[in-house]
Design a protein around this nucleic acid. Structure first.
Length: 272
DNA sequence: CCAGCAGCCTGTGCGC
DNA sequence: TGCGCACAGGCTGCTG
């Protein structure tokens, strides 16, 4: 589920259910989720912490606890579900939170790519959050900022848009959409972009992500029959997942090519 | 330092 | 029906 609009949608829904609740217990059923952290320590430290708020930074969820942030990245397929206390653990459920002895919040991740970190609040900068670039709506995100970030970069703009140390939150779907609206060829190199290109990228990043958030995100593969978040933005996609269809702008056929290992959809007539 | 690509995992869907 | 392959909304870590 995981680009910024989907994470934002998850954040809002988690907050409604969890704000003010206390984590009474934690079970970690798969070692790689907390990666290098000592799981016994994590469990000890998180017990009886109250969820004051749930924030978001880029594609990271941040549970704002009393003394810590619990950071959670869904990567490709992570999701949260609610279950009754002690209900049978299903396959792929990796982390079980006991919430106020009322119900369980479970983190489920088929591919096990997702990550969590429990960090002290004043050590946030040392966590993965500390390496992130600007939020799309940050006032510091200007064409000068991008020009500087992209100078000397021979990577394609498609690849650069996915670089979370420059702008956060854009993934493979929205990168394609942003480039389509900006009429930029995805192969164009970062250091070859014009001022107009850079302005269009910033403008369209905000437009696309805003619209996607309002639509509740994009749902492409419906591998969730249970309570996954189901967004509607897939109906508004212009090029992504539309190989062989007509470009809504010029009628040319939309093509798909791999750029740096990621499927990229674009119109080679209007994206120059 | 940088670009490119395998690797992490599991499941689904398609062509044969 | 079964098999093998390509693909999946992300990111890290290795290689040259």
């Amino acid at each position: 589920m995981p680009e910024l609009p989907e994470v934002e949608t998850v954040r809002k829904s988690l907050l409604l259910k969890l704000k003010g609740k206390t984590i009474k217990d934690l079970k970690v059923l798969h070692n790689n989720v907390f990666q290098s952290q000592n799981i016994e320590e994590v469990i000890k430290n998180i017990k009886n912490q109250t969820i004051r708020d749930i924030k978001r930074r880029g594609k990271w969820l941040m549970y704002d606890l009393d003394d810590y942030y619990l950071l959670s990245h869904l990567r490709m397929e992570g999701k949260y579900i609610y279950r009754d206390i002690n209900e049978k653990i299903e396959k792929h459920e990796l982390v079980i939170f006991n919430i106020d002895n009322e119900f369980e919040l479970r983190y489920k991740d088929v591919r096990k790519f997702g990550k969590m970190y429990l960090v002290l609040k004043d050590e946030l900068d040392k966590s993965p959050i500390g390496k992130l670039g600007l939020e799309p709506w940050d006032k510091n995100l200007t064409k000068e900022y991008l020009k500087n970030a992209y100078k000397n970069k021979k990577l394609s703009i498609k690849t650069l848009l996915l670089d979370q140390s420059i702008i956060v939150g854009i993934g493979n779907i929205y990168a394609d959409e942003i480039l389509f609206l900006s009429k930029i060829n995805p192969y164009k190199k970062g250091n070859e972009l014009s001022n107009k290109n850079l302005e269009d990228i910033i403008k369209n990043t905000r437009i696309v992500l805003d619209k996607a958030i309002k639509a509740g995100g994009t749902t492409i593969r419906s591998y969730t029959s249970e309570e996954g978040v189901t967004g509607l933005f897939q109906n508004d996609l212009n090029v992504h997942k539309r190989e062989g269809e007509k470009c809504p702008n010029c009628g040319n056929i939309i093509i798909r090519e791999k750029i740096n290992g990621r499927s990229s959809y674009y119109c080679n007539k209007c994206q120059k």
